[in-house]
Design a protein around this nucleic acid. Sequence first.
DNA 1: TGTGTAACCACGTCTGGATT
DNA 2: AATCCAGACGTGGTTACACA
Length: 793
Amino acid sequence: MTAKRKSFSLNDKRRLIEAYDKLPKISQRVAATKLGIPQATLCTLLKQRQTVLAANNGDRKRIRSGKAPKVEAALVKWIDNAHSCNARLSASLVKEKAEEFAAKLGEDNFKVSIGWFERFKKRENIVFKKLHGEAAEADMVSPGEWLEDQWQQMRQEYTEENIWNAAESGIYFRALPHSTFTFRSDNKRGGKKLKERITALFACSAAGEKKELFVIGKSHNPRCFNYVHTLPVRYAANAPAWMTRNLFVGWLTEWDRKLAQERRKILLLVDSSPAHDMTNTTLKNIRVEFLPKNTTSFLQPCDQGIIRTAKAYFRKEMARTVLQKLDEGSPATAVDIVKKISLLDAVLMLRDAWADVGASTIRDCWRKVGLVMSLKEELETVDPPAEISAEEFEQWIAVDDSTPVSEPVTDEDIIAAVREGFGMGTDTSDEEEEKVETVVPSRAEMRNAIRILKTGLPHVGFNNFDLLHHFAKEVNLVLDKTTIRICEMTYPHGTEPIHKTEKNMLDFIFSVDDPVTWHTMNLMQNRKHYSFLKYLGPKKISSIQNGHGAGVYYNTLVPADGRIIKYGIISTDTMIEDLLHWKTLYIAGRLHKPVKILLQNDNGKLRAALVANLKSAVTASFLMLPESFSEEDLFMQIAGLSYSGDFRMVLGEDKSKVFNIVRENMQNFQLLYSSILQECPQVVYKPQQGKLEVDKSPEGQFTQLMALPRTLQQRITLLMDPPGKNHDVEEILLQVAQDPDCGTVVHQGISSIVKSSSITQSLKGIATAGLMKTVSYSAKKVQKMWKGWRRRT
DNA sequence: TGTGTAACCACGTCTGGATT
DNA sequence: AATCCAGACGTGGTTACACA
């Protein structure tokens, strides 16, 4: 009766979807007849779009997994790893391994049959070639030979300053020494929970120079980082907190760029772990060389003492912290204390520990392994704290030595990774970790601490008064500044896009709930900040502020503590409005770039608006970027939004400025946007190419368009549909989504917002700029004023 | 008129093993 | 190592129909 039913291969399906996309907008029914399939088939097909397009084996007709997908996943990882180590694999070896994994993963029903093996190979596209014995064996070099031969050749063009070594090390930052602290804690709970680990990448040169640490943690946006402006280390995160190829390449690329600026070329030695694989990566100023396999432990300077020394300092500081708390008579056990140590604390401690490692130690380690010939130097020794025996201290330093620091190497790691990937998780839950709250000391407390140091230190023989004075001055400078930030934010140096001459110009935006009151108070305290407009009175000033442009009233050229600052006042409501709807994009646009949020009284609405603003920026950028782009392209696009809407349209000096803002602040951008990008279903991150891919289908673009801020949507409708004919916004956006020039339309919409607002804002700038302000300014005044104002409300 | 879905069952792929 | 077998399993193309 009915014709024989068809069955499509994944390639067929992909072709069908592509063909459907090329069709003009018609009903599924019509489209289906054109494609020669029933409507319902087309409907299901479109629903499977993502799965079909992501499939890698197009000749198959169904995507099916074997009976024990976990075993196969583990096996694939193991094979990958073996390949990257140039190990020879025979079919029987692989089968043996499969059996082992099955046993370890508790897959009792799984049998390593010939049939299974065949299908497994087909599914994964694996072929086992017969290898000839010698090739692999030839790779095995003795450390001595390598040193005399290859190494001498490699290092010829490089001086010791430019010969570097990098190595990862796992760090259980909450680990305690075996016995000393445990007497007061119940051991049962102790052990496991304290195993939170971070991985740090240490890099140093043969001359003793150290590179900023690269720390990899579990959490992308640890809560304890919230209030921190700049981390003293580079930070990244992934679930197992270990080095991946992607992170490593990212780190290298950035370093390469810095070196290019310095016109410096270096030779970097790393061990040959899969995470260090450099294929498809080109670096201009870094030559990456690998230590021969199985000789890493003898030849790697970092492994031979450098990292150990850093860890010794780290653990010593940890002991000091814990012991002090215990001595203060805190009822908490050592375990409790250690649990309160946040990731931030650990990172800061680790940074200091790394800074403490002496250049001579580093040089000596390089000499010891024989990579450089130089004179023997004094090795520093880190004495164990008095409370801990030397032996125990040694053990404590080494507790994390054998932890995996990069993608899987041992079977256990593979199994753990597979378990995690399949959502079974090992028994450790993060709940405990999440509860570590960060206590930021108040400014008064910090000031007091400085005072205590000043009076106390001379009594213990500290006599570098210059240093102390300088330190106190620097700290107070910062403290004073931060106190005047009534609600909001400042731009990090060099990112403020408006002023060209003043490199160190700090720009603050205060969002205040009631601008009239604020101006009244501020006029009384700091009349000199205001231009001639002050004669008009606070009400008039606020009305100028609110009535025109972006709703920001600026006082410029305000001297504060030897610096010139400027500050803008905006009402919180106006700001939220702009963040949510992009009415002017003036404030919203600035907040697309990383800025420091100084003090936030708990305004949930504002916080939500800030996030919404970032999301909008990402969405708008997606629409304007091609299907595939790099992270840098994305940030560039975002940074360009507030200029003319599209970075490509920015000309001349401004272009390089945007470029620089992004380059100098890559890390801050990543910190700002990483969680948003991760949560966004529209974008797929392809780590292999370091590229992001975004859904460019009409449906995808439509959802993106619908998510744009209201004002932008209105502008777009206006562009597409001149007033008069009243079409539905949704209807028009649907049209735009089909349009191949969709990105251009979005760009025009944004630039129409930016143009109209920046004109009014700069006109107002003329009125509010006034004459040069020469009168000195005290931050404390504003602080007092602010306090006074708060009391009254 | 349009799209989405429950149910049905053809058929691709699974399994352990035998055979070439 | 590759191919084949027979039976089981479960995906997904299709039909008929509900729903806006």
